[in-house]
Amino acid sequence: FRLLGDLSHVIAIIILLLKIWKTRSCAGISGKSQILFATVFATRYLDLLTTFVSIYNTLMKWMFLTTSFATIYLIYFKFRATYDKNHDTFRIEFLIIPSLILALLINHEFTVFEVLWTYSIYLESVAILPQLFMVSKTGEAESITSHYLFALGCYRGLYILNWIYRYVTEDFHDLIAIVAGIVQTVLYCDFFYLYVTKVLKGKKLQLPA
């Protein structure tokens, strides 16, 4: 489940990068969500400096870090002219500040690394909101953008199955990650519904008026 989750996460990022690169445009993509994701990776993968788990683990962490910053570069620099700034108006301080406060209050251990890890988990769970807000504001999304959102939504959903599996087989569970993972997946539910009922039937993702 974890491997499938990771793969679906990687596929989401590749879809997004390819979309921007091939169409030479980042229209419909929320730069703010991408900034939040880069923040998530940067604060979570600080453990690259302290803990070695496996080559797979290290490579994946580096990949998420580099691709998320590459995406930001494409949106805010290379294809800046195509960035839909007027529709990307979600106030991200409403996500950043509460996540930080929550991480300071509810964590496993009050240390810099641990609080930042917790912050990354909380922030990740809501990081997609600017993107979903943008889709709801414009009332539609290109098919490729919906494939990206679908793959990204599947990733945390698959992680929930991984957590159930780990709880059963290793008796390991991390309540912070589980609750945040559920919140994150629930946020995608509405989108999943539209994806299955519209995009998979060859229609464009268009919100009911």
């Binding site: 990771d6 641990e114 890890w117 290793e170």
Partner: peptide
């Protein structure tokens, strides 16, 4: 041990 487990996930 708890934190070792955690670094494992992405």
């Amino acid at each position: 041990n708890h934190s070792r487990n955690k670094h494992d996930e992405l």
